[in-house]
Structure formats: structure tokens, C-alpha cells
Design a protein around this nucleic acid. Sequence first.
DNA 1: AGAACATTGTGAAAAATTTCTCAGCATTTC
DNA 2: GAAATGCTGAGAAATTTTTCACAATGTTCT
Lengths: 218, 218
Amino acid sequence: MKIVNEAGVDKNLLKVPQPTIERLSAYLQCIRGLRTDGTLTASSTEIAQRTGINAAQFRKDLSYFGEFGTPGLGYDLADLEAHISRIMGLDEQHDVILVGAGNLGNALSQYMGFEHRGFRIVAAFDVDAKKVGQTMGSCPIYHIDELAKINAQLNAQVGVVAVPRTAAQEAVDKLVASGVQAILNFAPVALLVRPGIVVRNVDLTSQMEVLSYYLQSK
Amino acid sequence: MKIVNEAGVDKNLLKVPQPTIERLSAYLQCIRGLRTDGTLTASSTEIAQRTGINAAQFRKDLSYFGEFGTPGLGYDLADLEAHISRIMGLDEQHDVILVGAGNLGNALSQYMGFEHRGFRIVAAFDVDAKKVGQTMGSCPIYHIDELAKINAQLNAQVGVVAVPRTAAQEAVDKLVASGVQAILNFAPVALLVRPGIVVRNVDLTSQMEVLSYYLQSK
DNA sequence: AGAACATTGTGAAAAATTTCTCAGCATTTC
DNA sequence: GAAATGCTGAGAAATTTTTCACAATGTTCT
């Protein structure tokens, strides 16, 4: 029988705070590191120290999804990694489309080169006729106008936008039109997408500006 | 006379929420866009719509720093841009040290190439003897062991870490030792720094994992 | 087997952040 | 010049997120 709270709502459907999701990824990183060092178990306090996050926060974050620890002992790291991976959908392979085969696109394709933890770039797109037909890392570069046609075959759900600011919205529109559901955007613009499409911005300029603020306020 | 609140605290020293600082950067981006289009003034509602942020939030964010609008009219964009830039310390030039002259480092130096909005990469460092002595964009590549010596001259306060995970902590330690106060970290690790040093993480893996979660939870 | 111990999971309290609301004030209109 | 309008700034309310505190529980030691 399913566990329900007083309101009769399935506990697993309780809204999970966005910050929790982001921390989950940090925990994962920490757990992987510990396991690489040969550690088998850890307490919430140990993980908290290493991630700089409060131990109660860690336990609360996990509590949105179930019970994964053993009182008196802590958490089995192999087990916990598997669970968090599952929660985050990392047990499935994600095919990624990259738009923009410039410097940044190239660095990204290198970085995520060969199936980096469940993500694999399956195709790159650009407007530059000189790049079309070539390959970047192991994946072919197509003209952006072919995006719809090619993703009808590939069915990738994730897109990465690494084009200049002025081309970003158009790139996103084409990605969404081709069926992409989630987008990582490196261009420094606020993108407009229809509800249901997930966008995350990785804006270098913005990051530097925030650094600048804290630098100054000392 | 200075404005003080009930507690007798200088109003300008009231703690500003971190999310506010991050949004300030988004407003700036929006304002720049509007000004490029020739727009002279805008209301909080207009800026809110374009950034996807609540209008009251926008006004509240600004209120931590002063009064910049005109009732009935809105905000003078040139004026507002100048004020926010000032608040974020963008009226001063920041010299940046880049550690890691690989793919990513290269893309970054290209991106921030020629004094990108107040930031200028003044030197790059790497361990690879083949790279040392060459230049990346317009800046020289030195061996990482020379960091302390060279930054004693340059006095850069901002560092960018674009090295593999395993080398990141060491790179950070050297940056901090050389006097760097703020660090933008691209390596997927939690870095340890002494209090007072500002670190921001731009973790591609983490971003992708968060996307994956939202992709799955639909 | 029982006592001592370590650590989880969670309800409740506290803190932080966002959103609402509206008085007050420039600007424009009549 | 008075009235209407549009929009700001900020106190108050609502919401979200974090932190606290402790009962419950598995483990280890004697």
C-alpha cells in the first residue's frame, strides 16, 4: 500500500524544491568521489562536510524520495548512488543535440565526448557552410536547417545551445520544433519557450558579474 | 545624513539576498538588450515580462540599493544600467587569470577575448610544457609553477579554473596563494577555500543532471 | 541478552524569499 | 489647475526553504 500524508496526497508527488534537485547532483558528485577512494559507507554528517551543505538538509532532501540510510550506520554509498541516479533519471541514456559548432561547441563536445555519464552528443548543427559535412569529435555537423528532419530520426530530447546571443532564440525555436524537451543554454539571453520545456542557463557573463559584486562588497 | 532603519543599521549594509544579486545580472542583460533596440525608458512590468521575473520582485531587488525609478514613468534605462553596473562593481576593470589552457580554456579566452565587459584575461597557466611559451588569443601561457611569481606583478583578483577535476583543488590553492579573491570553477568538484574567498561553480555535468531530472519528472 | 552508542527520518520552528497591496507622487489630459 | 492615470517604493502577508531537535532504530560492545 502506498504511503499517503494527511491530505491524502501520494507522498512521492509532493513538490520537491528546485534547490533540492540541484543539491542532489552535488551529493552524487561527492558520493562518486568517496567511492573512487574506496569508501563504502558514509554518514549524513560526513557527506555534509564534504559538500558544505547542512547534514539535516541532506537528510531532508533525501526524505522527499524515500529512506535510504541505516540508523547508527549511515548510508551505503553504492546503494545511495544508485538511488540518486535513478531519481535523477541518470539510469537512462540521453541523446543530446548540439547547436553551434564554434569554439565553445567544440569544447563541449570534447568534454561530453564519449558518453559522459549518460549523455551522448549525437549530432551537431551550425550555419557555417564550411563546417557542415565535417565532424566534431565523433559526431557529424549538419546545417541547422536540417535539424527538424534529422531529429525526426534521432529523437534526441536534450539540446545544447552554444551559438552567439543573436542566434540563440532561433536555435531554441528549431530545437523545440524538432521535439527537444530540455535545453542547456550558453548564450547570454533570456529565452522564450512554451510551458513544459525545461531551460537552464549557463551564462558566463552573469557568473562573472556576480563574482564582481562579491569582490567589490568586501 | 545616512538613512538608517529601526535597528540603527546603515540601510545600505542590509544583507542583500544572493538571489537578488543573480537577478541583478539578468536585469542588466535585459536593459542592455532594450537599449540596443533604442528604448529609452521601461516600467518594472516591462522588464519583468522580458526576464520572466515578477515586477514586484524587480522593484524590491532595486530597493536594497536605492531609488532609481520615477513614479508614473518607469526607469530611465541609461541611468539604471549605470546604477546596476556600479552596484555590481562593473565600472572597474577586472584582470583575470586563467588556469588550464585546454579546449575549454581556449573557448573561454576566445569568449572573453578583448575586454569583454570589464573582464580581461591577462595570463593563462598550464602544466603542459608544450603549451608554455605559446599564446592563447592575445595572452601568454605560463607554467603553473610561475603563477605566484607572475601574479605578484599582475595582481589579478579573479581566477578561472578550467582544468580536469583532479587538478582543480591544487589550481585553486595556487590561485588563492597568489592573491586571487574570486574564482570561477568549471571543474566538477566541491572546492575548499578559506573564508572570504568567493567561489562560483559552473558545473556542466550538474546542469545536465538537473535537466535530466526535470525531463524524467514529466 | 542488555546497555551504550551512533545516526537516521521527520514534525515543528525559524529564517529567508517572494508576492501582494496600496499610499503617494510624477506626468498627462481635460 | 484640477482630475485621471500610471507607476514606484515599501510594509505586510504568504510562501518557500532551511535548520533544529528528538524519538525511533539498527549496531556494537560487554
